[in-house]
């Protein structure tokens, strides 16, 4: 048997237990199936742990055993094709939505979506941001007609439960809320942003969310402000615009 056939047989045995035990393995050592089971367990266990590294709070919510069982199911359907595991798991939150979860944490897929967004922001290049001075160079009329590109290391989310608050409650640190203090009925608009060596994140109001979503979709600033104005007054609008400018959320103007 060629080396390739042997490796194929072992790979199949590990993942599906379909093929026979590779014939050239020395069975005199005894317990060959138990030995090969360790490789199979490693495959599922190590990839389950890799998934847990990307989704630590999702795991905490589900409990480790439940998470491992779900990870195994996900791995069977969506195995990684590359050793770059920070890019494996993009479909996990959507997949999780289709799984039967306990009623009280039926929203867990939204946490997985938040954690995936956090991870992707952390591994995306932080572009140079437009500074307040850059923006002041435009006349007001020019500015209103500008289309801005948002920082590529950023993400906007809307969740029906306060996932960012819940996520914070699972982090170490004294300034984070405790789970008991969180109103689970509250929806949340969230902005994640890469800055230097940190991922920043905020709960933002509906007006700022509408403004940023519109800019992200290619609207002009005038169009984006109009959408945001439906959700706030002039003062709120000015505060939203100042937040955007002062936190380096705009990366460039579209030509």
């Amino acid at each position: 048997m060629s080396l390739g056939s042997e490796q194929e047989q072992l790979a199949e045995y590990i993942r599906h237990q379909r093929s026979a035990i590779p014939e050239r393995l020395d069975e005199e050592l005894g317990h060959i199936e138990r030995r090969l089971a360790v490789y199979r367990n490693n495959h599922f266990y190590l990839l389950g742990r890799a998934l847990a590294e990307s989704f630590p709070v999702t795991q905490a919510l589900l409990g480790r055993n439940n998470f491992d069982a779900l990870a195994r199911g996900y791995l069977c359907e969506h195995p990684p094709s590359s050793p770059v595991l920070s890019r494996w798991g993009d479909s996990f939150s959507k997949w999780l939505q289709g799984q039967p979860l306990p009623q009280q944490i039926s929203w867990t897929a939204q946490m997985a979506r938040f954690e995936w967004a956090w991870l992707q922001v952390s591994v995306t290049e932080v572009a140079a941001a437009l500074s307040p001075e850059d923006i002041q160079r435009y006349s007001q009329e020019e500015l209103l007609q500008c289309r801005f590109r948002l920082q590529p290391a950023s993400c906007l989310l809307h969740s029906s439960v306060p996932v960012r608050q819940i996520w914070r409650a699972h982090q170490a640190g004294t300034n984070n809320p405790s789970l008991e203090c969180i109103d689970m009925q509250q929806s949340e608009y969230i902005l994640l942003l890469g800055q230097g060596d940190q991922v920043m994140h905020w709960s933002i109001n509906g007006a700022l969310y509408a403004l940023l979503m519109a800019l992200q979709q290619g609207d002009t600033l005038a169009q984006a402000l109009e959408l945001a104005a439906d959700k706030t007054d002039d003062q709120g609008l000015a505060a939203a615009a100042a937040f955007v400018v002062n936190n380096g959320i705009l990366a460039a103007t579209e030509e």
């Binding site: 194929e8 072992l10 790979a11 590990i14 490789y39 495959h43 990839l47 195995p79 990684p80």
Partner: peptide, 10 residues
Amino acid sequence: WNSVYYNDLL
């Protein structure tokens, strides 16, 4: 093997 990464050293 065949587009699947096993995350183990076989």
